[in-house]
Amino acid sequence: MRTTTWQKSTYSGNGDNNDCVEVAATGGTIALRESDTPATVVRTTPPALGVLIRTLKAGTGRG
């Protein structure tokens, strides 16, 4: 059985009330989840996640 190793940002801190997005590499995909609802997992590809991150950093999102 394969174990998924989840990581969160060091900016999140430790202790209670430090909910954050966690990320894990699983084969050829990237898995994302919210630490306060770990059963809900979103999967994407590294290139698609890269586009999302670059778009967010550039502030060019539409919404």
Rank of each mutant, 00 (worst) to 15 (best):
M1D: 14
M1Q: 10
T3F: 04
T3A: 14
T4P: 09
W6N: 07
W6H: 04
Q7G: 01
Q7I: 04
K8W: 00
S9L: 03
Y11P: 05
Y11L: 14
G15D: 05
G15C: 04
G15Q: 08
D16A: 14
D16R: 06
N17W: 08
C20H: 11
C20T: 15
C20Y: 03
E22T: 02
E22F: 02
A24C: 13
A24W: 11
T26M: 08
T26G: 00
T26P: 00
G28C: 02
T29Q: 13
I30V: 15
L32M: 11
L32E: 05
L32C: 04
E34D: 14
E34C: 07
E34S: 13
S35Q: 05
D36E: 14
D36V: 00
D36R: 06
T37Y: 05
T37N: 09
T37G: 10
P38A: 12
P38W: 04
P38S: 06
A39S: 14
A39G: 11
T40L: 12
T40H: 03
V41T: 11
V42N: 03
V42T: 10
R43I: 01
R43H: 07
R43L: 10
T44V: 13
T44P: 03
T45Q: 09
T45R: 15
P46V: 13
P47N: 12
P47S: 15
P47M: 12
V51Q: 07
V51M: 11
V51Y: 01
I53Q: 06
I53R: 14
R54Q: 11
R54H: 12
T55Q: 15
L56A: 15
L56F: 02
L56T: 08
L56N: 05
K57F: 01
K57I: 01
T60I: 09
T60W: 02
T60M: 00
G61T: 14
G61N: 02
G61Y: 05
G63I: 06
